[in-house]
């Protein structure tokens, strides 16, 4: 196996992920519609309830829609990360995962390729959302569209790796609802996606610290600052660290010798 073979393998995995995304129409549209529903309904409803004071990186008072846009970008990636790897768990009882794992390439490479593929899809989704959000007057500086790219890649990696970990550790999931309740909702709501953390701090100090410890908060903040051409070093560090941790766990979970695949019998 030479680097050319590795490149072909990666190319094939990315292409398949992209094809699946565009050809499963339901998934395609729900991925686009979900954040727009939040923007159009939730943000409109809370527009007058929640006043947002001037906090970095914003330099003026901003409408609520502008505040939650980065959180919605992170949400797109959260859903995408869960979907692309968890679909492997219940889609035909690990069938597609088996096909991937009997490839002669090393397992860490296959999992990383799978992760990169899901990041490519989630970044494209995020930009489509930004394009539509422009009509809601969510218009960051033009250079922000460029500087947000590395942030989206990093947060996409983290959330995708989390999906991989879950897919290796979760024994059985009846449907997507389980993940919604125990992963997506807690991560999303206990974060800075919907409300600034200083407001959370006013009502509950415990919740404030939970939000601070939530890697999703840092993914959101990383995207928020990057969208305005600024760097959030702490968030970048947390997201990078969490990515590494999740990836190590995922490779461990799929290790044929130690992992949990063996314990549950590989879908038998």
């Amino acid at each position: 196996m030479t680097p050319i073979h590795y490149a072909r393998c990666l190319g094939g995995i990315v292409k398949r992920e992209a094809l699946r995304w565009t050809q499963q129409r339901g998934r395609f549209f729900s991925a686009l519609v979900r954040p727009l529903v939040w923007l159009a309904i939730f943000a409109a409803g809370f527009h007058f309830v929640l006043g947002v004071s001037i906090i970095p990186p914003y330099e003026t008072y901003i409408p609520y829609e502008v505040y939650i846009a980065p959180g919605l970008l992170a949400m797109i990636q959260l859903f995408n990360g869960m979907q692309s790897s968890l679909s492997m768990v219940y889609d035909r009882e690990m069938g597609s995962m088996k096909t991937l794992l009997v490839s002669p390439f090393p397992r860490w490479f296959l999992l990383t390729a799978k992760l990169l593929a899901s990041v490519v899809v989630s970044v494209v989704q995020a930009y489509i959302f930004l394009g539509i959000a422009w009509f809601w007057e969510i218009d960051p500086p033009p250079l922000g569209y460029l500087s947000v790219l590395p942030a989206l890649i990093l947060s996409g990696l983290m959330l995708g790796a989390l999906g991989l970990v879950l897919s290796s550790f979760i024994r059985q999931l009846e449907n997507f609802a389980g993940v919604m309740n125990f992963v997506i909702f807690p991560m999303f709501f206990a974060s800075s996606a919907l409300y600034p953390l200083w407001r959370v701090k006013e009502s509950s100090l415990t919740l404030y610290w939970i939000c601070q410890a939530n890697p999703f908060t840092h993914a959101t903040e990383l995207i928020r600052f990057a969208l305005y051409g600024q760097m959030a070093p702490l968030s970048a560090g947390v997201v990078a660290g969490a990515t590494l941790l999740f990836m190590v766990l995922a490779v461990w979970g799929y290790d044929p010798g130690r992992g949990l695949l063996a314990r549950r019998g590989g879908g038998e």
Partner: peptide, 26 residues
């Protein structure tokens, strides 16, 4: 494998091309 493992939404050729790439063929 015993369970079907094809991507139902992809074409026959797309499925096979994916598999070929998993073996370093393109």
């Amino acid at each position: 494998f015993q369970q079907p493992t094809l991507d139902l939404d992809l074409t026959v050729r797309q499925n096979l091309a994916y598999h070929a790439s998993l073996h370093g063929l393109a």
